[in-house]
Nucleic acid binder design. Structure first.
Lengths: 355, 355
DNA sequence: TTTAGCACTCTATTGCTTTGACTGCTAACA
DNA sequence: TGTTAGCAGTCAAAGCAATAGAGTGCTAAA
């Protein structure tokens, strides 16, 4: 397998995957000959196909059928796509559509990811997902405020460096003086401000109690709330769009396969595990087949979007093994660029989310 | 059809639906005879079935097949279930499970609905949904606060009578004095406090501008934010659980039907339209068939849960026409009771959502 | 009114045959 | 030595006929 393929074998293998991607049917020697290699006869191609089969690139579903690409064939095919000509794959309408949708709804970062997932799925017609790591544990708490309300309630405000704010009403005994609340707020701020959420997670109950003697009741509420905030936000945000589109492809006409696929894809944890598994340093990953991707009869293409060197999240597409790799990579590439640029400017001014 | 059925016809019709629900196969006269009416012969039952067919209750898929219930048969069957013996349908384990799950996670109201949907789906093994109307337009704004933060930002707090709080950071020019913000907050409060969201929706831009001359910049931000809040919260919250379970039933082995079902059920607006269509005064509704339910080959059972006379939301189950009506009704009934009681106490103390 | 018995109908299953899409092989050719 | 044409062989899929089985409706008798 380490042996280099002859130029003609490459041509034939590429043609075969191309044809298989567009038709989904086993590809015959005649197909390849008529559409890709009219200069040689089908018999010659047959001989080459035989060789490629021996090399493990392709196989026959049965003796009298054409050939179907195997994992290695897809890998070969994907490797042959280089980013430069991939970006030409999108039509003007498509880039226009992507740009338009992307910038039309520049809301909070969560909306952005969701929107991106939607766009990807719309343009590619495959199931897409976006995992947003920005809610990760290393968010720093900027400021905590305790605001008294009517009726013996108060609100805790948490401002983080990522521009996120959490709030929840807590009880304060009616007879507590406003000054008490104010002081409590100041103490809270002193304890938490500047810390990351990861650090707070490890806070030892005892250690804290010393620091804020006498505010125990309020403090307990706030700590509980913080824990809740942590548990909600420390798991990555996962957006899946177009899950049903998979059912349009012949690979998933079987109801059991469809069910298995849908149940994986609708489990956010499973999705995030699948996606975040791979190496962050690689910008694009393509995984084909069950062992690689975790889902049967599927291929997954992911792109990491970064700001500077830090991976902010990943976007990807999950589709049939014979999916339109060129197009998907083009779309992801385009999205990635826009994402990085928008995120980049956003992080500098985390609260500027509307113009 | 207005004519009363003979006692034996009723017995036979009931038996037929029972059998069909448990097997999903056309029911033959012999089936009914052996399991429900051994005292008469199958020939007699055949004669009765003939009559019931003429009355439009049942039909034969083809001449040499058994009978299958039609809409009217299901309706008859459902009518024969009375609440009192329905509640006996649940086993001790089941009630224990429901109660346990329900009270274990008494978080915010949203969580409660979601949890309820999950429980219903788990116990019945059908797809369930809960529509929560508590986010409706007639939420009153209790208090609005404007809190200055560092770095030229401020936060708007909206406290409603339903205990909900929305927040978002807005920009304030760095050079604005804290007193200015404070005054702005007071003005905002004066304008909005006590109003319902519905009323605010109709606010005329001009009318307001008069009132708060000079705070235009801040006010615009707040108004935009309020609009966003309204658009997010005025649509009802819909939770769907166990959508994939439908694929386990033979009715939905066909991939196209499955797709159609899933696409309806994953469109929250469509779901909420289906559910909220019917009369609020009726506690239970059962709708069978496409014309009734909006989804093909399905039956929908909904229960309205109320606090006092006000409908707070609806919970329901969507399943095959031949679903286990008794069990579903029992479960919904049980949930309804717990829901009403929990909600009742919650509304009195809207902020008490943790003990 | 009920029942037993029987003829009839229609689906589902099975096995068989035909068709057609490909291939692999071989022998001739450049 | 590589390429090609031609042909025999293979196999899935489609079509078809025969059979089995499930269940009914009808009729005549109890």
């Amino acid at each position: 397998m380490s042996k280099e393929l002859s130029e003609r074998k490459k041509k034939i293998l590429h043609a075969l995957v191309d044809l298989y991607i567009s038709t989904g049917q086993p590809v015959s020697s005649a197909d390849i000959q008529s559409k890709y290699l009219p200069e040689v006869s089908s018999a010659t191609i047959r001989a080459e196909l035989s060789a490629l089969e021996a090399l493990g690139y392709i196989e026959q579903p049965h003796t009298s059928a054409g050939r179907v690409p195997l994992k290695d064939a897809y890998k070969f095919y994907v490797d042959s796509i280089d980013g430069s000509n991939a970006s030409n794959m999108l039509t003007d309408q498509e880039t226009e559509f992507i740009r338009g949708s992307f910038f039309s709804r520049l809301g909070q970062i969560e909306d952005l990811s969701k929107e991106a997932a939607k766009i990807i799925s719309d343009v590619t017609n495959y199931t897409s997902f976006v995992v947003d790591k920005s809610g990760d544990g290393n968010v720093t708490i900027d400021e905590i405020k305790l605001i008294p309300l009517k009726r013996g309630k108060a609100v805790v405000l948490i401002v983080t460096d990522k521009g996120m704010i959490a709030d929840k009403a807590i009880d304060v005994k009616e007879d507590v003086k406003p000054e008490y609340i104010e002081t409590a707020g100041k103490v809270l701020n002193k304890v938490f401000a500047g810390k990351t959420i990861d650090e707070i997670k490890e806070f030892d109950q005892k250690e804290i109690e010393q620091e804020i003697q006498g505010f125990k009741d309020i403090f307990d509420e706030v700590l509980g709330m913080l824990r809740m905030y942590i548990s909600e936000h420390s798991s990555d945000n996962v957006f899946v769009e177009g899950a049903l589109k998979m059912l349009d492809y012949p690979e998933y006409q079987n109801i059991d396969d469809a069910k298995q696929f849908l149940s994986v894809i609708s489990d956010k944890d499973a999705v995030s595990e699948i996606i975040l598994g791979d190496d962050d340093s690689i910008e694009f990953t393509v995984r084909i087949g069950k062992e690689d991707s975790g889902v049967d009869k599927c291929a997954i293409i992911t792109a990491a979007y970064k700001v500077g060197d830090e991976v902010q999240g990943k976007a990807g597409v999950i589709g049939p093994e014979r999916m339109d790799y060129k197009k998907v990579i083009s779309v992801l590439d385009y999205i990635k660029k826009m994402f990085s640029s928008v995120l980049g400017s956003k992080l500098l001014n985390p609260f500027d989310d509307e113009e």
